[in-house]
Design a protein around this nucleic acid. Sequence first.
DNA 1: CCGGAAAGTCTACACAGTGTCGAGTTTTCT
DNA 2: AGAAAACTCGACACTGTGTAGACTTTCCGG
Lengths: 204, 204
Amino acid sequence: MSGHHAARGRRATERKGDLRERAILDTCEALLAEKGYEAMTVGDLAQGAGITRGALYFYFGSKQEVVTALVARTVEHLWERSLTTARSEDPRRAVAAAMRRTVELWNAHGLVMRTAIDLSLTVPEIGALWDRTADLFITAITAVLERAGVPPGEEPDQASSMGRALCWMIERSFYHASQESPERLSRASATCEHIWLTSAGLTS
Amino acid sequence: MSGHHAARGRRATERKGDLRERAILDTCEALLAEKGYEAMTVGDLAQGAGITRGALYFYFGSKQEVVTALVARTVEHLWERSLTTARSEDPRRAVAAAMRRTVELWNAHGLVMRTAIDLSLTVPEIGALWDRTADLFITAITAVLERAGVPPGEEPDQASSMGRALCWMIERSFYHASQESPERLSRASATCEHIWLTSAGLTS
DNA sequence: CCGGAAAGTCTACACAGTGTCGAGTTTTCT
DNA sequence: AGAAAACTCGACACTGTGTAGACTTTCCGG
């Protein structure tokens, strides 16, 4: 609860601390890939960023806060780019475009996204971040379903519920596939796309 | 790696230790519900089972081992009952039966199943256990798809891939829904059933 | 029913990682 | 220049883990 960088808003000149902060986050991402969340200690983090543990605690209150910030950074970057998805006329094209976009996202940020999913239970902050992200996807999927003629509503055979289920299918399929290889990811994507289309009544 | 109860096979008379072991596992399940995996310490576990930490380490090497044993116990119980699923003639009935069965499972053991999913990444033992469970489900779903006329094979529009994707959809939907309420769980179930049927070409 | 082995239990200890404190140094702004 | 803010560090207290070794209880063959 020490008010350090919460008070530091956008700034003209770049503080030394902004550098450090970025270094910490980058180190965190690297260590996450290298040894995983559990095994990564605050000491490792500090060492990787070239400072001592004490100094790190000036920037972040805990390991969880560091990871939360990393997830926030990634997820923000993700929100910006995903708003242009829904604007295609043909639902079939919209689905294909959305899936392509999502594959790119997972190829680029799979590690952080998997971490976010893993920690959403134990770290409420990350849970909230990820829920919001999922909602974005659910809304997008639901919109496409409705455009394809699925009636709106919360009943099992209506768009909203189906959108949610399909989102979870994609999340989980990609979670597993992105752990394996980009190749598996694109196969998983094709499968999900097919089920999505079928569910929307767009059987070729 | 201390050879204590690994050597103790099935036994006519029930050792005192078997009692303890069960007490520990029961306590573990209770604590998991009460405070979650992270917050639960080995001390809590021991206290709940009415012994000291030292005594607990006689039975299990670590907190992870306790939880692994709990997951194993639950999942075994689960394997036994799920083998009778595939024997219905009408695919529509088979799907309905499978979903009903799965809802029961999640209502009864949702907590342990969610824990298993959460830990499958960090605890390889649990990962293996859960993978095997998932494979069971995937195989069952795939079988029903094929019986309904979906061609077998690994291509995106063929049974095997679709079975996997549908399994993940169900897992994730149930994971979230079972956290909320039995009511949400049954709604999620209905949605998943609808998508499954549609994917199998069994549109009413 | 006795005596040794196996099973079970406990207290004490060593260790690793966390988070905090207060005293210093550097940077920034005026 | 000089005060305030930003930043850094080493040392400390605390919590939880896993291990060691001594002790008690239970089992079971002779």
